[in-house]
Write a protein that binds this DNA or RNA. Structure first.
Lengths: 384, 384
DNA sequence: TATATTTATACACACGTGTGAAAAAACCAG
DNA sequence: CTGGTTTTTTCACACGTGTGTATAAATATA
């Protein structure tokens, strides 16, 4: 005992620690070793687990000297907190759920990137759920994630039909809608100004001299789908061009749908000279069919997409498209969500609308023509 | 009161339930309502929470009649289990961690798709971690996921350097390597036969008459990177073509790296007539530069990629590539992992090697030439 | 020295669920 | 009705952590 006092603190650390090591070694030789808990540390340090808990959480209630000693012991014993137990007690899991319809779509992959990145920065983990556009699954997963006590949810809704589930789980976990909002549901969301984006795209085509401009719409029942069609029509109306409903055909968020929709348009007696697709993948499908039919783009047909996914610039010809900063959208959503989590004020809601920009590439512009003067337009040269 | 009794059994359910509803209503009017726990159910049902727990888990220790009654009450009260508390007690979270280097690469996005899909089927949730190829982050995240008590991990390693961390956490959570294995580390993995894939690709180019075949390698220190270079050289050696080390230039898993690497190759006094890129994105970069320099593909330069990501078929010209069933790889990894979790035998390890196939498209074949007769080769017509 | 005041630690309960073992209830044979 | 057997429920503790309060120790004040 007397010896202890001389080295003050250190000795009392080392000896019992070694003792406990031996205790642990007694477990089934090759099998998994038992986890070190704060109780084990307490035993070694000669204090109660309560004190250890406080020490590790830097509570001012424990003497700094003791705290240091306990932390040393904890480190030496290889202590690592059990996040599950913490979650149960602290009533937050530091986890958010991300629900997206289709991870294979680069649009959502990039959003996921932004979400994961920001979440990590803020100390959260992301549970990823890919619904494959299944509304039933979306609902059941929201439920499951709530049971799992995620602190919040970022949801990219599939359709207005989601509103029903959302309303139901509103009080369970706070959530942010991403990419699409819900009419009649007062919630936080981060969206892009899709009306404006579609308006820019269509106006661009009109400026190039096109009058028969088709639109391959997104048939999903969501706000971006609706808004893009709205923006398209708005541009036409504003320029006194008649909106022909048969020039608006439904597509989908994949390449095949564009291919098929283009087929219908090409078959028309008086086919369009330009196509505005609600989605880059759809637009790529259009390009694929155009090539197959030897329809030269942009000379015989101008094509504009939406989203500016990475490959848009590498398809042939490079695709003019409306760019959304998808990564930023994801980051914003998480930021918003976590702000909400950290402020008890449940009252004020935030709704962020991000402005898209038009990126002009070769699919809507012959090599010679150029010099556009629209605001919010980026013109990319192929060699930049 | 009397009316209730006639319905035998229902009455005892309804009345106390309503009572409790009132109790809950007393919370701050608009704020979050208190969760229903098994104790609440117990109070209403007039039993202990232990019995409720057993009833809800279909334990044979509770009378079926009682169990039914309890379940009815639970449903009526809107009970939903607290998965965190369950996890703490049951010692498993029904969660797996997925660690990937780059979600923006469609290759990993598709793997993620497969992993999430299979995990859902088996009742697991997936925590997604995107490391951005940061080895330090990979290590710290493995640690964090272990603290979170994920039941297992699926890891797409960034480099052999990962082995260090992996060894360290081997006893914490079981894991499966996906896409790349680790020499000197005896663990379960699911990989593709990359030597064979690269061999197929290179042989294909040789069969087309090419002799100066460059290889844009993946400079990462991983088994697929190594193996693809190995397969490339193996094919050359087998056909008695000298391996020129300066025809092997490093790339990376993105478009720019291919663009840059192609630049170096084109600059050579005696440039290659064919390029085998270790990655589709890299190959797409090659195509981009070739177009810029007016080098026609495949006439002046044949290009072959690896992975067969979705857009490979839509770039110009459509890209010949080595196809891996990425979704299947992801599903297999999860299947393997969960098998491991459900069998206590920690002894036997499983190592699955999936065979890739060559998909021939226009980037390595002129429209006229065709009729190849290699086994494991798919020839896609542009219109299929 | 005794008392008030501050500081540090111990104690005990809590989070929501699961479970072995004791206790109670129901059933059965004599 | 007794004693034994089986079925059903209760009791009490556990998982690993956090935290309010009581208690003990150290320090300051009178």
């Amino acid at each position: 005992m007397a010896g202890f006092l001389s080295v003050a603190g250190l000795s009392s650390v080392l000896r019992p620690a070694l003792k406990l090591c031996n205790l642990n070694m007694r477990s089934h030789s090759k099998s998994r070793e038992k986890r070190v808990t704060i109780k084990d540390i307490a035993k070694v340090a000669g204090v109660t687990h309560g004190t250890v808990s406080r020490a590790l959480n830097d509570s001012p209630l424990v003497k700094v000297e003791t705290a240091k000693r306990i932390k040393r012991i904890a480190k030496r014993m290889g202590y690592r907190p059990d996040r599950i137990a913490q979650s149960l007690k602290r009533r937050r899991t530091k986890t958010i759920g991300l629900i997206i319809p289709d991870i294979l779509n680069p649009f959502f992959a990039t959003i996921t990137h932004g979400v994961e990145e920001k979440a990590t920065e803020l100390g959260y983990h992301v549970i990823l759920v890919n619904t494959n556009r299944d509304l039933v699954r979306e609902a059941s997963e929201i439920k499951l994630l709530c049971e799992r006590k995620v602190d919040g949810l970022v949801i990219c809704p599939i359709s207005y039909g989601s509103a029903k589930h959302l309303r139901r789980f509103k009080n369970e976990s706070p959530f942010i809608l991403l990419g699409s909002n819900m009419p009649g549901l007062v919630v936080d969301y981060v969206v892009s100004d899709d009306v404006q984006g579609a308006y820019l795209a269509t106006t661009h085509l009109i400026d190039l001299g096109h009058r028969r401009i088709a639109h391959i719409s997104d048939p999903s029942n969501t706000s971006p789908a609706e808004s893009r069609t709205t923006g398209y029509k708005k541009a036409l109306l504003e320029r006194k061009i008649r909106v022909e409903e048969n020039l608006v055909v439904p597509g989908g968020a994949n390449i095949d749908s564009g291919y098929n929709a283009a087929g219908k348009l090409f078959e028309m007696p008086d086919p369009p000279t330009a196509i505005f697709a609600a989605n880059d993948l759809t637009a790529i499908g259009v390009l694929a069919l155009a090539k197959e039919r030897n329809i030269s783009v942009p000379e015989e047909l101008a094509v504009v997409g939406y989203d500016d996914i990475e490959i848009a610039k590498y398809v042939e010809p490079p695709l003019t498209t409306v760019a959304q900063d998808k990564r930023r959208l994801g980051r914003l959503a998480v930021q918003l969500l976590c702000d909400k989590l950290n402020s008890q004020e449940e009252t004020d809601i935030h709704q962020i609308v991000v402005q898209p920009t038009l990126v002009v590439r070769a699919s809507s512009r012959t090599a010679s023509k150029s010099v556009l003067n629209l605001s919010k337009v980026t013109v990319e040269s192929p060699s930049s």
